[in-house]
């Protein structure tokens, strides 16, 4: 829908901006209420970030507190829990990129190789399902699956003989990294594969036919045609994933740790976002928590710039 009425456009060109604004009041009325909501609910908190350089006290107006310079950041870096929080964030995200990024690609390739159309559809439909349930529901299912009291995983482990009384997975910190990776894979495997399945669908079938004539094996066709064609998609998504590396999925970790109330899991489960939540909203150290959150935003942005630069160097589509 470009300029809808040419006469109107010609007329508008001669008038001042203000007159044009008034003339199209009915169009402005449609956008201005939404824009005001964006300004209030997105821009005021953005402005409020300056409280990271202040000492906010309850009852004060956002951004009008006493300036303290970098004091909050000095506190942050001398906070004994902070190195652990950084480590957990990087390890959980790193494991997810290492394991849960490539598996959906492999899954998509496998889906593409399936011959039974009906069965293929069933698998796809089922695999997308967990994406639509909340992490609250997902945690409920996982707590039950991994419970020591008749949970399927522990029953299986007992049957195989790995354990006698069951492993209390969600009460020991040493299983937590594995659990975040596994539950994330369970929930998002199918969903994350959709974009790759779509990319594979766009591959020119003639390429496969040509490869058949040249006597290529199936593995060769997968590697040299399918994977090569979807490489740009893979790289773009990898950039996004690495760029958001410090996010570590707040929803998931909050739910799997019972909103961080499970102290056993803090050793391996406390990440930047949960740290901000604990210090900001539970201990009400608002400025301190905002500083931690700002630190995360800055690092995330730097990561995005770096990965984009690297991708640009590789000669593929850059983002920014």
């Amino acid at each position: 829908m470009s300029a809808s009425n040419r006469d109107e456009v010609r007329l508008n060109r001669d008038k001042s901006v203000f007159a044009r604004f008034i003339h199209q009041w009915d169009l402005q009325v449609l956008v201005i209420p939404s824009l005001i909501l964006i300004l209030v609910f997105s821009y005021i908190p953005m402005y409020g970030v300056i409280m990271a350089f202040q000492e906010y006290k309850l009852g004060e107006k956002l951004g009008f507190s006493e300036w303290v310079g970098l004091k909050q950041f000095v506190y942050l870096f001398s906070e004994p829990a902070f190195p652990r929080v950084l480590r957990n964030t990087l390890i959980i995200s790193g494991l997810k990129i290492l394991i849960n990024f490539p598996i959906p690609i492999i899954f998509a390739v496998m889906i593409n190789e399936m011959r039974a159309k009906q069965f293929k559809k069933v698998v796809q439909t089922v695999s997308y399902l967990p994406h639509f349930i909340s992490w609250v529901v997902c945690a409920t299912l996982m707590f039950d699956m991994f419970s020591t009291d008749g949970g399927a995983i522990n029953e299986l482990l007992k049957w195989v003989g790995v354990t006698k009384s069951g492993i209390p997975f969600f009460n020991r910190s040493n299983y937590f990294w594995g659990l975040t990776v596994a539950t994330d894979l369970w929930k998002e495997l199918g969903w994350n594969s959709i974009i790759f399945i779509a990319a594979i669908a766009g591959v020119d079938p003639q390429l496969y036919e040509a490869a058949d004539i040249d006597g290529a094996t199936r593995i060769q066709k997968i590697w040299y045609i399918t994977v090569q064609t979807i490489k740009p998609t893979i790289i773009i998504l990898l950039i996004f994933t690495v760029g958001g590396m410090l996010n570590a999925n707040f929803d998931q970790i909050m739910m799997l740790t019972n909103q961080m109330s499970n102290a056993q899991l803090r050793e391996t489960g406390d990440v930047i976002d949960t740290f901000v939540y604990r210090f900001g909203l539970q201990q009400m150290r608002y400025s301190f928590a905002t500083a931690a959150s700002l630190f995360k935003t800055v690092i995330n942005f730097v990561l995005l710039l770096i990965t984009n630069h690297v991708a640009g160097k590789l000669g593929d589509t850059a983002l920014l």
Partner: peptide, 8 residues
Amino acid sequence: FGGGIIPT
């Protein structure tokens, strides 16, 4: 960019 949970 967002302001994060505390200012919000």
